[in-house]
Amino acid sequence: MAPNVVLVTGVADRIAGRLAAELAADESIERVIGVDPNPPATGLPERVELVAADPRGPLVTRVLRSAGVDTVVHAAPLTGPGQVVGTMRLLAGCQRAGGVRKLVVRSTAEVYGASATSPAVFTEQDVPDGVRRDALEVESHVRGFARRHPEATVTTVRLAELLGSGADSPLARYLALPVVPTALGFDARVQVLHPGDAVAVLRRAVTHDLPGVYNAGGDGVLLLSQAIRRAGRVQLPMPRAAVPAAARLARAELSPDLARLLNYGRVLDTTRLKTAFGYAPRWSTTAAFDDYVHGQRR
C-alpha cells in the first residue's frame, strides 16, 4: 500500500535526514514528519515537519495519532542509551494510535557479532548473538510487534558498516587516523555499505511492501590491511588488547563490537536483498571505500 503520512525517527542523523528529504520530494506522499530531540545538522526541506521530541517521552504517541501516521520508519541509529526505551515507546505508540500499517526498522549487522566461531558469511537465518545487547533487544521488540500485528507490514534491514564520501561513523573515524592501530596477527574481512545505498534500501522499504528481515551490504570484501593501504595510511600492529586504548588515544572510539569486527571480520549474505527485496547496492565495498578515501582527500 502506498504510504500517505510517514514519520521518520532520528532525522538529525545523516541517513535518516536524507531519507526524510527524499521522501519529502516524493509528491505522492502527503506528509513527512521528522522526529529527533536534536536539530538536524544539515538543513532539511521545508516539507519535512520537524518535531523536537525525545522518543522516550509521550509526545511521539500524540503525533502518531493526531497526524494519522500510516508508515513509521525507525531510522534513528542504534547508538546512545535511550534506544531500547525509545523503540519500546515508539512501538507502544504505533499500537495505541491504531492507524500504522507499516513499520520499517533500521537495524545493524552488529546483531550478528564477530568471532572465531562465526560462519564466514551471515544469512538472515543465522541466530544473532552479537555483543550489542541493545540492538538485539530492539529487534526482539520489533519481532514482538510483528507477531501481535500480523496485519502490519514490518521490514527490518540490517545495515553493514556505513562508509562513503563524508560518512561520519566510528569506522570512518578509525580509518582516518594517520597511523592506524591494528591487532597483530589478525586481518579482518570488512564489508561496507555506502550511505547512498542505505538510504535507497530504507526508501524502497517505505514505498514497497516487503515484510521480513534483510541484510544490506556492498558486494565484495576488503581486508583491513588492504583497506588501510588503499587509503594511503600506515598500520601499526600491536597486541590485540591494546588496540581500543590506542585508538582512543588518537580520539577514535572503538565499540566492543567494532573492536571484534576489526579482528575477525564480518560479511553479510545479500542474496535476499537482491532477489526478494529487489535492490542491488550500487556501490561495491571497494567502490564505497574508494569514495570514502576520495572524500577524505578533498
Binding site: 564489508q191 565484495g220 570484501v221 576488503l222 588492504q226 583497506a227 593501504r229 588503499r230 560479511v267
Partner: peptide, 15 residues
C-alpha cells in the same frame, strides 16, 4: 599490488 591494496579477496578472506 600489495602496496596499493589492489588485489581481489573473496568473502571468506581468500587471497
Amino acid at each position: 599490488n600489495r602496496l596499493t591494496g589492489e588485489y581481489p579477496v573473496d568473502e571468506f578472506g581468500f587471497d
